[in-house]
Amino acid sequence: MSDSPRESVPVLELEGLVVRYGRFTALQGLDARFQGGSLGLLGPNGAGKSSLLRAILGLIRPARGSIRVLGRDLRRGGAALRRRVGYMPERDSWIGGVSGVAGLAHLAEISGLRRDDAMIRAHDVLHFTGLAEERYRPVATYSVGMRQRYKLAAALVHDPDVLFLDEPTNGMDPRGRVRMLELVDRVRREHGIHLIVASHLLPDVERLCDEVWVLDAGRLRMADTLERLTAEARGAKRVRLPAAAAARALAEAAGREGFEVQEGERAAEVILSRPDREVEAREVFRLARRLGLEVHGLKPAARSLEQAFVEVLEGDG
């Protein structure tokens, strides 16, 4: 398997994929292809992200259409395919009654590793995810963040080629989130594991993904690279001030001077643009000086993924 050239086989190909639960149609005819790298699945609640993940993993049978993962048809290569994918579910999940490391070794063995290899891998991935000290404790005693990292360890223990993450940082505190994102990022950058992430947290997707699919009401609304989605807005500048009040003062004055003013991503930020030309740094500094404001940041404004997302979903109804 691994000797086939990776570039030529797309990681994921969907053809006319329809998924139904009873009478409810969760996915209505998806056609898409993900060549490889890292993919973010976005969409409002009920858009079909989880259904898509579950269908790809073979947890739900599609009503119509086909799914090919790493060039294999899911219906035929089910078991073989599942040895090569790792899934980190949204809900907590572990094997009860045994220590963290024993449960993990067990899962690795199920995914096709030999018994001794499975035990070695289980210890290794727990070290990697920073759970080395907790590995002999039952998972039921872990904290929210630890359980989340344990799920990542479980998804990685059999060394998959494709990693599926469903809301990977859900419920984690800021440091836990940063740590989780760092781990996932390293796995994909340094070890070439393909990544498919479903998340509501757009900054997470921005951090991890090169490509983005936006789903809405069971359809694919957009598929594009992150780079193109967040391309610089023409000539706009993002200005950062010491406090929200200062930002409001600048916004007001700038409005009078003929700038177009937008809210920034932060309360202490404003985005300034000109309808006709690029905004020059010089004029912003001068304006701030006149108002007696300290400038804490000034740079070309990129469009955030959030803006792009909202535009896609609200764009054409």
């Binding site: 993993l57 947890l59 089910g78 078991a79 073989a80 599942r82 040895r83 994918v85 899934y87 579910p89 809900r91 907590d92 999940s93 572990w94 094997i95 009860g96 009654g97 899962l107 199920i110 995914s111 096709g112 998972v139 039921a140 479980a154 059999h158």
Partner: peptide
């Protein structure tokens, strides 16, 4: 009951069924 209830409580089935089980 310990086995099945334990698996349901810890949602182990999701960990199993994304593998060749």
């Amino acid at each position: 009951y310990d086995l099945i209830a334990g698996d349901l409580r810890s949602n182990a089935l999701e960990s199993y069924f994304c593998r060749p089980v």
